[in-house]
């Protein structure tokens, strides 16, 4: 965390909604080249891919958020993150700007949010163009527990 209490986010667009992912968690942003489907895997898992010799599990954030799935195409944007020593890629529709936002301006997510969203979005920032939900990477990847609880 920066000294003046600003947090830098990589903003992404999923189903028309802007999310911010803390840059400290982002390993890299890349375009998909090839994705291998995994039969019998849960619907959130789009497949596995090779990122410089590392096997990366790709998570479709749209499905994760309960949005209708979209066919994953080559060139689709992905945000690479690490979780419990494993590599994951969060598939998003677009990757936007990198924003440094003051921690003080962060607000709690509205209670009216869909439970599937509120589990992932731990906060919200008001920006000029609209709201940016703060995406909690750990929670976004804890979907098995979520799925079982639901």
């Amino acid at each position: 965390m920066s000294a003046d209490d600003h947090i830098t986010y990589v903003t992404v667009d999923v189903g028309g909604q802007m999310f911010g992912i803390a840059i400290s968690r982002v390993r890299e942003v890349f375009g998909l080249e090839r994705l291998t489907r995994v039969p019998l895997a849960s619907s959130e898992i789009a497949g596995v891919l090779n990122l410089r010799g590392r096997i990366v599990t790709a998570i479709d954030l749209r499905t994760r958020l309960g949005l209708p799935a979209k066919a994953v195409e080559a060139g689709a944007m992905a945000v690479g993150v690490d979780y419990q020593n494993e590599a994951f890629a969060l598939l998003v529709d677009h990757v936007g700007d990198v924003l440094a936002l003051s921690a003080a301006s962060r607000e709690d997510a509205p209670p009216t949010l869909d439970p599937r969203w509120s589990q992932i979005a731990t906060g919200v920032h008001r920006l000029d163009g609209g709201l940016m939900l703060v995406l909690d990477v750990d929670r976004a990847l804890e979907f098995r527990a979520v799925a079982q609880a639901a």
């Binding site: 080249e33 090839r34 291998t36 995994v38 039969p39 019998l40 895997a41 849960s42 898992i45 596995v48 891919l49 090779n50 010799g53 096997i55 599990t57 419990q84 494993e86 098995r144």
Partner: peptide, 27 residues
Amino acid sequence: VKPMASRLNHIGLFSGTTILGDGSVIL
């Protein structure tokens, strides 16, 4: 052989993944 991603271990039909010469991932 590369280990199976933890999220996919429960499937039971796969023992791991591998990367082929053309860079694609195979189960």
